[in-house]
Measured scan of single mutants.
Amino acid sequence: KLATQLLVDLAEGCHTHHFNSLLDIIEKVMARSLSPPPELEERDVAAYSASLEDVKTAVLGLLVILQTKLYTLPASHATRVYEMLVSHIQLHYKHSYTLPIASSIRLQAFDFLLLLRADSLHRLGLPNKDGVVRFSPYCVCDYMEPERGSEKKTSGPLSPPTGPPGPAPAGPAVRLGSVPYSLLFRVLLQCLKQESDWKVLKLVLGRLPESLRYKVLIFTSPCSVDQLCSALCSMLSGPKTLERLRGAPEGFSRTDLHLAVVPVLTALISYHNYLDKTKQREMVYCLEQGLIHRCASQCVVALSICSVEMPDIIIKALPVLVVKLTHISATASMAVPLLEFLSTLARLPHLYRNFAAEQYASVFAISLPYTNPSKFNQYIVCLAHHVIAMWFIRCRLPFRKDFVPFITKGLRSNVLLSFDDTPEKDSFRARSTSLNERPKSLRIARPPKQGLNNSPPVKEFKESSAAEAFRCRSISVSEHVVRSRIQTSLTSASLGSADENSVAQADDSLKN
């Protein structure tokens, strides 16, 4: 292990032709098999893994070397290190390495390699500790012929580059190093199909959405987006994914797998022009299946994007999809995704031109529960009313008269009656009930004795009459309010007539 670390330190600071010789020695160290011998017992696995620490030291050392060589000349050094790393990870899946030390190597290698970024000039870069990406002036992410390196360097940008540029090249004859992302992409596909350690798979799935944002990485080298989509959909639809995973937390289920895969599918929607129609349908189907899991909100957001990006695919699945959405409970976490999906859909009339009455009724059935102001915040309630109004205007004229009683009944049950079921009123009724029952229970537990009763009969009569009056008032709060309003209006009217009579009498006395 110490000798391997010494080789790594020497290679990191070497800029001459001896660098390749040092890498040859490190490569021989990495070539050791990580498969346990067949006769190895389970209690000896930890000791055997400790004997392979030099392999881990070599791989982690290459990660440090690549981070240094990416910004220094010659660029061919970075290319050689990158290829060695990718080849080593491929061996893991070729020979099915399952030892804990092998999983640790893959975890740290993917953690580093999935941080690679590219700008519009195809320059590769890595983020620093502050998250700012520094791009290399010597390494690009696409394949290029050595003699055409300078031509590639002087080509115009596709868009303004992001991030601070690296140091300027030493001279005009500098050759750019090619670090094609397709090599890593193929290893990522192998990981999605064969990885057995949940920690490694979770890391890859968590980092892929951010990497897919940099389309330069994908399009400048032959990366098959179709295969990526197929691998992701197979993970969700195939039963073998959960069987092969180990190291998963207790209670791990298909729902947890959906939570990890759906963000990658959402990021892949922007590549729909490069996906086969069959793959697009598979993607939409997987998102529909996710509606029954805890990732339902993410799936609804993804389907909203699909309705804009892939209208030809979503239009066929939309009638059944809208009916499925009615089975989702009206909760605060689902309110905004569902209502925004319906609001977006209302502005795309070509998608729902074939809707029948059942689909329009489903839209109103989804939106009406969110009009309850005692359960949802003001934004959700306003958005629900907006969706109902928009869809009522957009639905066909023959359907409107049939939906009017349905909508008014839903609004009455969710908006008007919600004020009668407020917690304050319920607590008031509970308190009044307890007050009504309390005197009775006290009389049963403690019967009054005439000799020891010091309270006069008049006081008892007053208290009983007050309790009886309170019971009468607490029967119905709404009736009490109505009666008080009527009494107030009658009182004001009587006072007004009394004032008029007094004024008339005063005038008569003055005349006399």
Rank of each mutant, 00 (worst) to 15 (best):
G238I: 06
L184V: 09
Y97T: 02
P249D: 09
P209T: 13
V225W: 02
D142I: 02
V59Y: 06
E250R: 07
L126E: 01
T98P: 03
L115R: 14
M84T: 06
S96K: 09
S96V: 09
V140L: 08
E53L: 07
A50E: 12
A78S: 06
F252N: 02
K153V: 13
T72W: 14
V140R: 06
L60F: 11
E53W: 03
H95F: 10
L85T: 04
L228R: 01
L212I: 04
E195Q: 00
R213C: 05
L183C: 08
L208M: 07
A102G: 03
T57A: 09
L115W: 07
R207H: 08
I89N: 00
L126M: 07
S87W: 10
G166A: 12
L158S: 15
A78E: 01
P74Q: 03
L208V: 03
Q227N: 10
P165K: 15
L245I: 11
Y214S: 07
S224L: 04
L188R: 00
D226C: 03
Q194H: 10
R134N: 05
P161L: 14
V187M: 06
T57H: 07
S237T: 13
L52G: 05
S104R: 06
E250F: 07
Q90A: 14
L66W: 04
K240E: 11
S87H: 12
V132Y: 11
E83C: 11
F252M: 10
T57W: 03
Q190I: 07
L228W: 01
L115G: 13
L205W: 00
L242F: 11
L205E: 00
V86R: 01
V59L: 03
S230F: 05
E151F: 12
G125E: 02
L158V: 12
K215Q: 06
L228P: 00
R80K: 08
L66F: 12
R80A: 04
L158N: 09
S49G: 06
L126R: 04
R123S: 03
I105A: 01
P165F: 09
H95T: 03
L99H: 06
V132F: 11
M144Q: 08
L116K: 02
L232M: 04
I101K: 01
C229D: 00
L62N: 02
P137D: 11
L73P: 14
A118E: 01
K56A: 10
L242D: 03
I89D: 00
I101D: 01
Q194D: 13
Y138I: 07
L126D: 02
L124I: 14
L188F: 04
R246Q: 09
D54M: 01
F252V: 08
S76E: 14
L228A: 01
R134K: 09
K153Y: 12
V140P: 02
S159D: 12
V204H: 00
L176I: 13
T57N: 05
L91I: 13
F185G: 02
A231F: 03
S104V: 11
V81H: 00
R207S: 03
G61N: 01
A78W: 02
Y97K: 01
F135E: 02
S221D: 03
I218V: 10
L203D: 03
L212H: 00
L208Y: 01
P165L: 10
V216E: 05
L70T: 02
P137S: 09
V64R: 15
L189W: 02
C139Q: 07
V86Y: 02
T79N: 06
P222R: 06
R207L: 05
Y93D: 00
E195H: 00
L115N: 15
Y71G: 03
Y71A: 03
L91Y: 07
L176V: 13
V216Y: 04
S196Q: 08
V204T: 02
D142V: 02
S211L: 14
A78M: 04
H122P: 01
F135T: 04
S230L: 05
V216W: 04
S103M: 06
L91M: 12
L176G: 10
T241K: 04
Y93S: 00
L212Q: 00
L203E: 05
P127L: 06
L85M: 04
E210I: 11
S221V: 04
M84G: 03
G156C: 09
M144W: 13
S211D: 01
S221I: 02
R117P: 01
T79Y: 09
G251V: 04
L99V: 05
T98E: 09
P157H: 11
C223F: 02
E147G: 12
D130Y: 09
L121N: 10
S234M: 09
L63P: 09
G166F: 11
V200M: 01
A75D: 03
S237G: 06
Q227S: 08
L176C: 10
Q190G: 05
R186T: 09
I89F: 01
K202P: 01
L124W: 05
E145I: 07
L205G: 00
V187E: 04
S221Q: 03
T79Q: 14
K129T: 11
P157Y: 11
P209L: 04
R186Q: 11
K199E: 14
L205D: 00
L124P: 06
D130F: 08
T68V: 12
T68K: 07
P222W: 02
K199M: 11
R117G: 02
V132S: 14
F185W: 08
L115E: 12
L124D: 02
V225T: 05
T79W: 04
V133C: 06
K202M: 06
P160S: 13
R106A: 00
R117Q: 07
Y214C: 12
G166K: 12
Q194W: 12
W198D: 00
S104L: 11
F185P: 01
L124G: 02
Y181G: 03
L99K: 01
T79F: 12
Y82W: 06
S96C: 10
I218E: 02
Y71W: 04
C233Q: 04
Y82Q: 01
I218L: 08
K152P: 13
L52K: 04
S159N: 10
W198C: 01
D130M: 08
L62V: 04
K199Y: 08
K199D: 15
I105Y: 01
L232P: 01
G163Q: 13
I218N: 02
I89K: 00
E195F: 00
A50K: 10
T98G: 07
R213E: 05
A78P: 03
P160N: 13
S234I: 06
Y181I: 04
S87D: 13
L115C: 13
C233D: 01
E147N: 10
E210C: 06
S182P: 02
S224F: 06
F252S: 02
T220E: 03
L91E: 10
Q67I: 01
I65S: 02
G61C: 00
E243I: 07
C139P: 02
K69M: 01
S49A: 09
L124N: 02
R246A: 12
A102W: 02
F219E: 10
H95V: 05
R207I: 03
I101E: 02
S159H: 09
L188W: 02
S221K: 02
R207E: 02
Q67G: 06
T154L: 12
K69N: 02
H95L: 09
V133T: 12
R123D: 01
P160F: 08
L116N: 02
K193R: 08
L217H: 04
P74V: 01
M84C: 06
E250T: 07
T162M: 13
A173F: 10
